[in-house]
Amino acid sequence: MNTVLTLTKRELTAQFFSPIAYVVLVVFLVLSGIIFGMESFKPGEEASARTVFAVVPYILVLVAPLLTMRLLSDEFRTGTIETLMTAPVNEAELILGKFLGSLLFFVVMLAGTLLYPLIMSLYGSIDVGLALSSYIGLLLVGGLFIAVGLFFSACTQNQIIAAICTLAVLAVFTFLGDWLASNQEGTLRVVLQHLSIRAHYEVFIRGLIDSNHVVFFVTSTALFLFFGVKVLEFRRWR
């Protein structure tokens, strides 16, 4: 566990030293800020941050790949993987450390959006429970996105390829999930509906923390992390 924490700390520090991370941070806050400004205070409607929360995963589809692409690709490209994997560190510890480090950076990113409920509370009372469940939903989505990105980063030493593959997979399951499902019949339709990230996330921004959907995010994140470990192990054999 100590090793994981050491790696987590290094990863988080590395994120803060990477110019890409700052660009991602700024783009994320600017985009979500614009939506908050435009959508949350409409004349004649109840002030609500719900639209912002609904849109954030779409922004994440674009920025998460940028955050995760260098995680392992860079270690392969520069050869630092060689010093890491000849120290007493196993593949699972490495993946977990990288994952937690990036997740913490994502938490920092999310912390910037705390401003929105704060601003709203200036004009009235906010629904704390709803905000909480929305943030938990976002955290779960972010975790899954990072796990997918980490997996693709483990597959290649080319950051761009890692980013594009991550983007493609995230986009399919976030933007196109519902549309794909609606074009299918029978079992396939049900399966695709269950794989739609949007549908699972929707529940959280309605204020519901349903174990069903928590389990979906947790298990799919774990699955991609597991794949990441396997890819790392496999790479040694080549």
Binding site: R10, T13, A14, F17, T78, G79, T80, E82, L84, V89
Partner: peptide
């Protein structure tokens, strides 16, 4: 290793402490 791969963003002292922790 041959190319002495290191993390460019770390300071040498930080890097050595990081490696020490891994050990």
């Amino acid at each position: 290793p041959e190319s002495a791969p290191l993390y460019g963003e770390m300071r040498a002292r930080e890097y050595l402490h990081f490696r020490g922790k891994l050990h």
